[in-house]
Design a protein around this nucleic acid. Structure first.
Length: 565
RNA sequence: GCCCCCGUAGCUCAGUCAGGAUAGAGCAUCUGCCUUCUAAGCAGAGGGUCGGGCGUUCGAGUCGCCCCGGGGGUACCA
């Protein structure tokens, strides 16, 4: 908690009869800096005392006394506005950042607690399309954010590596497959086989039956089927890992659907034993009327289990393995009902941790207003997007900074950053219309803009060359931009917490853009390094604080911050 | 049919959870700014019935109800 707000709450509570918590909730930051640093709106009081808010604000302002931290108190309309002692605010914020360095914004809220994040989770034998970008980058960012807050975070890639489609792929591979081709380009080879299977099945319906038989053999542990499946899985994973490496993403577990297959029987037995399961229309279901939801299907009429069953088993397995504080599922909003049902069943099973399971849902990535789907063939490969972006970044470096040393590395950081940021900066629940121009834009509210700003800050630090101290004259940092920057920096830890609470990396994005924009305005107006030693010293501490915060913020998004670009 | 999500400037989005001081950015368009710390930057201009209506309120982009448009889900795919 910011001690300035604390102080304001104290001052107000001496004058009016409201609980401190309530006052704290009312204190806000005025839209315009000129109005003040903080404000207390008097509408609530107006109602309570049946007086005009303006009048109350005026009277309150007169009665309240300034203190060491709060320099001015005055009313404007229905607001009591407060101006803090800028020097003390600057000292408070900058010293804190300077002391904490990369740890600024971190917290011990998550100490001793584990958060499980299920994200990315692509299907084996299918191309890794741009549609997978959201779950992948949101999940990764949440990993960084919760890590920052002190949680132990377990990243699970819940691979789609089980299901009847593997019977089809195995059969298709046996009929038309080619080892070399598979090795060269596993995902598209497997995918082509899958597509071809569906074409052929039109002509020869008996293939469907044969494929089912192959999946059955796989389930029963048949050697040939298992070997092929394992091969497909390994090759696909290799290819996924290439993309993950580009993105700088790692996982702690690749426990996919296939792992949970072994728990199906015991899970169903447990549900039955708890008296929750019943037969309906030849299927085994759990009724969820209590939650106003349609029933959850555990078993089809042909006895096969469904993904809900697997997700229930997986949730239990995860709890037993990790004893999580929260278990997050970063999965598209199309599966909202599915997760409501799964969590509902878990609750009916009397698992008290069911309430700690959270579906972190998100909207679609659409292409020219259309749904992207592997079937329609209008799929864009994530790797292509990344490569194109890296290439473009390289081109821009050639234009703007041809003497840069590690061009390729920087092109990679910037190109990939641009793609990540473009996705993360939109709130989760909105659909995104994929647009090359927008993803490959390096200007305005983009990662390259933030990275460029960071490089600029680093450049200043290099040019200054001397070590930076916090024993400075904080009174020098008195321009409007400087105090706006300081207040923004002060807000960073709260922003990190807010994005964790709402599972919204987008909050970090807008914070960073804000910070960059105000710094760049300042940079444009004021010379940082001058003959004036006192002013230079003070400003360099500010520069260092911005640089640390910016880098730290970008890292929460999984984006790297090069020192030159 | 029922349920959920979205609808803010030409385009992409903040702001909606906790209603308040003139609705903010970026892109695109137009105009300026590099002999001085990285112009991937900065300054300025134009551009808005906040999908529509009704209501609650001193006050609604924000809350409630109804409607329109788009998307998703809705028992044996995931």
């Amino acid at each position: 908690m910011n001690k300035f707000i604390e102080e304001i709450v104290k001052i107000i509570s001496r004058e009016i009869d409201l609980p401190k918590e309530e006052i704290k909730a009312l204190v806000e930051i005025p839209p315009d800096q000129k109005l003040g640093d903080y404000a207390f709106p008097c509408f609530v009081l107006g109602k309570r005392l049946k007086k005009s808010p303006n009048q109350i604000a005026g009277e309150l302002a007169l009665r309240m006394k300034v203190t060491g931290l709060i320099q001015e108190i005055y009313s404007i309309g229905p607001y009591v506005n407060f101006k803090v002692d800028k020097n003390k605010l600057a000292e408070f914020v900058l010293s804190q950042i300077f002391d904490q360095k990369d740890n600024y914004g971190s917290d011990n809220a998550g100490k001793g607690k584990t958060i499980v994040v299920d994200f990315s989770s692509p299907n084996i034998a299918k191309p890794f399309g741009i549609g997978h970008l959201r779950t992948t980058v949101i999940g990764n960012s949440l990993y960084h954010i919760f890590k920052k807050l002190g949680f132990n975070v377990v990243r699970i890639n819940h691979l789609g590596d089980w299901g009847t489609q593997f019977g089809k792929v195995i059969l298709a591979y046996k009929m038309w497959g080619d080892e070399n081709e598979l090795l060269k380009d596993p995902l598209s080879t497997l995918y082509d086989l899958y597509v071809r299977f569906h074409q052929e099945v039109e002509k020869k319906p008996q293939l469907e039956e044969e494929a089912r038989a192959w999946f059955k053999r796989l389930e029963e542990g048949d050697k040939e089927a298992t070997e092929l499946w394992k091969k497909f899985r390994d090759y696909s994973l290799e290819e996924f890992n290439r993309v993950y490496q580009m993105l700088g993403i790692e996982f702690d577990s690749y426990a996919g659907e296939s792992l949970y297959n072994q728990f199906m029987d015991q899970t169903i037995e447990e549900i039955k034993a708890k008296g929750l399961a019943e037969m309906s229309q030849d299927a085994l279901i759990v009724k969820l009327e209590k939650y106003d939801l349609p029933p959850c299907l555990l078993k089809k009429k042909d006895e096969a289990t469904l993904y809900a069953t697997r997700d229930i088993a997986a949730a239990i397995y995860r709890y037993n393995t990790y004893h999580f504080h929260k278990s997050l599922y970063v999965v598209g909003s199309a599966q909202k009902l599915h997760f409501q049902q799964v969590f509902g069943v878990l609750e009916l099973m009397r698992y008290k941790w069911a309430k700690d399971c959270v579906h972190v849902d998100f909207g679609w990535i659409k292409l020219r207003q259309e749904m992207m789907s592997t079937r329609k063939g209008n799929i864009i490969l994530l790797e292509d997007v990344l490569n194109k972006s890296i290439q473009l970044a390289g081109k821009i470096i050639e234009e703007k900074n041809p003497k840069l040393e590690n061009k390729e590395e920087v092109a990679k950081d910037v190109g990939i950053g641009a793609v990540l940021f473009a996705d993360l900066s939109t709130r989760r629940n909105k659909d995104i219309d994929f647009d090359w121009d927008q993803v490959l834009s390096f200007e305005g509210e983009t990662a390259p803009y933030a990275q460029y700003t960071h490089a600029r800050l680093c450049s200043l630090l290099r040019k200054y060359g001397k070590s930076i101290h916090q024993e400075i004259d904080f009174g020098v940092l008195s321009t409007g931009e400087e105090s706006t920057i300081i207040k923004l920096l002060e807000d960073f830890p709260r922003k990190v917490k807010a994005s964790a609470e709402s599972y919204e990396p987008a909050f970090i994005c807008s914070f960073l853009v804000n910070l960059c924009s105000i710094f760049n305005r300042f940079y444009q107006k004021q010379r940082i390094i001058t003959e004036d030693e006192k002013s230079t010293k003070a400003r360099m501490l500010l520069i260092k604080a911005i640089q640390l915060t910016l880098k730290s913020g970008l890292s929460l998004l999984g984006i790297r911050a090069p020192e030159r670009m």
